[in-house]
């Protein structure tokens, strides 16, 4: 983190600059497993975002009292609690979402993104920025899942959010609904974002000779 400038907004940081899916490549299990429809992707992304906000907030609140040696155990206990609570709430609130996500919600515990944010951010920062970070990372994750889900649903089923796009005679690319399709669409998106980033970096380097950029990050 640079000391000369103000730290980046934790919310926007997760949403774009440090996007969990496309930049940090974290939480690949749900990314690949539940993105075969846009609806599932959005629901999973939002559920993860919800868990991230709660767990980051709780961890930040007690960060000064956590003995260093048992901090990971502490984080996991808190994350597991947040996930269980989410599971109950989803079951109670919405039947369709529960039908779609039922087996996946318990897996949020194993999403390394949640633990990573606890260790990297919430353990060092106050409650409000931590929750902002959780929301940003969570929504960034949801954005990533939605990107994948879009490719997979449009090609794999010819629909977007279950709305047919190509008429009744569309030949679905079954592959994209199957697990390999998850890997392929992830690769396509990573390629797109890497190209985009590289181009931006090249522009930045070209501009370096003229003006010093306001912020140089390690």
């Amino acid at each position: 983190m640079s000391t000369t400038t103000t730290p980046p907004n934790p919310f926007l940081n997760g949403l774009w600059r440090q996007n969990p899916t496309f930049v940090q490549i974290l939480g690949m299990c749900p990314t690949l497993a539940i993105t075969n429809s846009v609806r599932n992707a959005i629901a999973m992304g939002l559920a993860t975002a919800f868990v991230l906000v709660i767990s980051n907030g709780l961890i930040a609140a007690i960060r000064k009292h956590v003995p260093k040696q048992v901090r990971i155990a502490t984080y996991i206990a808190i994350i597991a609690t947040a996930v269980t609570v989410t599971d109950y709430l989803v079951k109670a609130i919405s039947i369709p979402v529960y039908k779609a996500l039922g087996p996946f919600i318990p897996l949020i515990v194993a999403n390394c993104l949640v633990l990573e944010r606890a260790e990297a951010f919430a353990a060092k920062k106050p409650v409000i920025p931590s929750m902002m970070d959780g929301a940003g990372m969570g929504l960034g994750f949801a954005f990533g899942l939605t990107c994948l889900g879009t490719v997979r649903e449009v090609l794999g089923a010819g629909t977007f959010l279950s709305i047919p796009l190509f008429g009744p005679n569309f030949e679905p690319w079954v592959l994209f609904l199957l697990p390999p399709g998850g890997f392929i669409s992830l690769a396509i998106w990573l390629l797109v974002f890497a190209t985009f980033r590289e181009r931006k970096q090249r522009q930045l380097q070209a501009g370096l000779t003229e003006i010093q950029p306001a912020e140089v990050r390690s």
Binding site: H65, V66, P67, V70, A73, T74, A77, I78, A80, T81, T84, V85, Y88
Partner: peptide, 14 residues
């Protein structure tokens, strides 16, 4: 003690 209290709180929450 810390983990015990934490587990208690988490359990009660659930």
């Amino acid at each position: 003690r810390f983990l015990g209290v934490l587990s208690l709180i988490c359990g009660m929450l659930i």
